[in-house]
Design a protein around this nucleic acid. Structure first.
Length: 269
DNA sequence: CCCGTGCCCTGGCGGC
DNA sequence: TGCCGCCAGGGCACGG
């Protein structure tokens, strides 16, 4: 599922491939992905030039002349750039561009979302208005202040995009493993030093993952943003029953905040 | 404030 | 082999 590094990889490719292109028309083939008025979505985007793509946390933003389209890929959303190939049943939104390219939003589970915003309201309205800072942008002090009074588990805090944005289930597990913190620890029981360590781990892991995503993309003709390479760096996530790379104890899968959570019960305390 | 649950959705998998 | 039922998960609404 796309978390910050995967979304960043998609952003870079789309930015490179589509900047300067102009939207000719938009087809909405499955409606509930578009959360704004459907008619406005298809009419207002016509003749808008793509200034580029930006990103906030896991949100991808298509920057146009007068509008921004705020996109969340959720679990399985991905983009393809095609020309006139047959349309797959999983391609739900199609942006026809004047260059002849078609930007196609593909989402098997149909969980992704798109919001149309006028530029003045992009950051002041839902969904971006309440988004927390990314690990790279938040300070140690800010982060500790945000978690120190919480009675929630640290895992659920890391997944809460209003606290800190960009981490999903995979990178949250990896972050806590790197920081040697057990996912069921409560925010209010995390020390200042541990808080710093979690933040440092999150930054480091996201940074490495973005680098790997960048190196993996060689062909722009296949589906965009699928790296596959970061999986080789995982220490605990999806490693149930495998030995911990540090202490060789068996990795456990537990349930925290309703999410499958991988942990080394020996290293993480 | 926080938690669990359900919802959205469908491919894939385990069980029989 | 085939079918059924359940799980996965990001984010939010809801009730406790």
């Amino acid at each position: 599922m796309p978390e910050l590094p995967e979304v960043e990889t998609v952003r870079r490719i789309l930015d490179e491939q589509l900047k300067g292109d102009v939207i000719q028309s938009v087809d909405i083939r499955y409606q509930s992905i578009v959360k704004s008025d459907q008619d406005e979505f298809t009419t207002k985007l016509v003749n808008q030039t793509i200034d580029g793509f930006s990103r906030m946390g896991k949100y991808l933003i298509m920057n146009l002349d007068y509008y921004d389209v705020i996109i969340h890929l959720r679990m399985e959303g991905k983009f393809f750039i095609k020309h006139h190939e047959e349309i797959s049943s999983h391609e739900h939104i199609i942006f026809h561009l004047k260059s002849g390219k078609e930007l196609r939003y593909h989402d098997v589970r149909k969980f992704g979302t798109m919001h149309l915003k006028t530029k003045e309201t992009t950051f002041s309205t839902y969904p971006l208005n309440a988004l927390g800072k990314e690990p790279e942008a938040i300070t140690e002090v800010e982060f500790y202040q945000k978690i120190k009074h919480k009675k929630a588990t640290i895992k659920s805090i890391l997944l809460d995009q209003h606290v800190i944005s960009g981490l999903g289930n995979i990178y949250a597990d990896e972050t806590l493993f790197a920081a040697k913190i057990h996912p069921t620890r409560l925010g209010c029981n995390i020390t200042n030093e541990e808080s710093n360590s979690i933040l440092h781990a999150a930054k480091h892991i996201l940074y490495e993952a973005v680098l790997l995503g960048g190196t993996t993309i060689r062909s722009y003709t296949s589906q965009l943003g699928v790296t596959g390479l970061f999986q080789t760096k995982l220490n605990v996530h999806l490693k149930k029953g495998k030995p911990c790379p540090v202490c060789h104890h068996e990795i456990q899968k537990i349930r925290v905040a309703g999410r499958g959570t991988y942990v080394c019960e020996s290293c993480q305390t």
